[in-house]
């Protein structure tokens, strides 16, 4: 029984790893005030590029690097057009997602349904024998370790370093940041690129580990859109966003198990169920905005304390253009 549970957990970690990576990437980007809507296409194109490169050079890690490069390049296009040329980030992002998707299917055609290398498993010596932990971490895909490390690194960078402070500052008030000598547009471009690289890594994680191989469909279609929702769900906090990503993965994985338990319920129900459940959860998390809930919270000191640590505010300048030449 514990082993089944441990295996389920391992499955959730695996399914959640690319979601976590992409969520962290988008959180970084949005925290700097830029909305990158090209996620879904980016993930797909990065997945294709990563697989193609690892087949060609027989090196999956080179594939991961290439996926990151592709993600960063798409984000760079958005960054230059959105940040420096002052165009709508939303419109450009949408177009890029469609472009990247079609490019992926077109360029990846010759790699379709081909065998290729994947990232394999990392075996950490001495852990495999520990009960419960062993089946989860003993011998696992490196993307899980990568995603867990990325959660910590993102949190540490955002809340414990000078650079992270500047990141939050440009997303909060670009005017004030400019007034303090921070190069707002450059900082925004950096985090656009960094976020894109993480999104690209998520694509590579799909085609080299979670759903190895390339085809049409690859299997990761739609992941980018749900990631955009999870970022909001996570309140632009890397740890909470990662929890949101794992929660969604858990819903998907448990759907597979429940399908076996309840064979009478049609399979599509379990495939679709995670999406409405996500919306309901988002609603529950954000109940604090409803009037009567606010009254209840105010009357109850325990709830009040809880609500303070749970309040969600978007970066104040999210999606706003800033041009230093116009001055303050």
């Amino acid at each position: 029984m514990t082993d089944t549970f441990a295996l389920t957990l391992a499955g959730i970690l695996m399914a959640g790893a690319p979601l976590v990576l992409a969520t962290l990437g988008e959180t970084l980007t949005e925290k700097a005030g830029i909305i990158n809507l090209s996620l879904d296409g980016s993930i797909l194109l990065a997945a294709m590029a990563a697989f193609a490169v690892s087949v060609t050079f027989d090196s999956p890690w080179l594939g991961v690097l290439c996926g990151m490069g592709v993600g960063a390049a798409i984000a760079g296009v958005l960054g230059v057009i959105g940040i420096y040329l002052g165009q709508s980030q939303l419109a450009v992002g949408f177009i890029l997602t469609l472009l990247a998707r079609d490019l992926a299917y077109f360029l990846g055609h010759s790699f379709s349904r081909q065998p290729g290398p994947d990232l394999g498993l990392w075996t950490i010596p001495g852990i495999g024998t520990i009960p419960f932990i062993g089946p989860i971490f003993g011998s696992q895909s490196p993307v899980i370790h990568l995603s867990l490390a990325a959660i910590f690194l993102c949190w540490w960078w955002m809340y414990r370093t000078e650079g992270g402070m500047r990141l939050r500052a440009v997303g909060e008030s670009p005017r004030a940041a400019f007034g303090r000598g921070i190069r707002v547009r450059l900082v925004r471009l950096y985090y656009c690129l960094a976020g894109g690289a993480l999104v690209g890594m998520a694509g590579a994680a799909y085609s080299l580990a979670v759903k190895p191989g390339w085809g049409r469909p690859q299997g990761c279609e739609g992941a980018g859109w749900i990631v955009l929702a999870i970022v909001i769900f996570g309140g632009w906090n890397p740890v909470r966003a990662a929890l949101g990503a794992f929660f969604f993965a858990a819903l998907q994985v448990s759907g597979i198990y429940l399908q076996e338990v309840f064979p009478s319920i049609p399979a599509p129900v379990f495939q679709v169920a995670p999406f409405p459940i996500m919306i309901l959860t988002l609603l529950a998390v954000n109940m604090g905005r409803v009037g009567w809930v606010q009254d209840m919270v105010r009357r109850n000191p325990v709830l009040k304390r809880l609500s303070q640590s749970w309040s969600i505010e978007a970066p104040a300048a999210l999606g706003q253009d800033f041009d230093p030449r116009k001055g303050l």
Binding site: M165, R168, A169, E172, S173, R175, A176, A177, G179, E313, P315, A316, L328
Partner: peptide, 10 residues
């Protein structure tokens, strides 16, 4: 011209 969502020391 400050950052309301961020703490005093930041």
């Amino acid at each position: 011209l400050d950052f309301p969502a961020m703490p005093v020391w930041e």
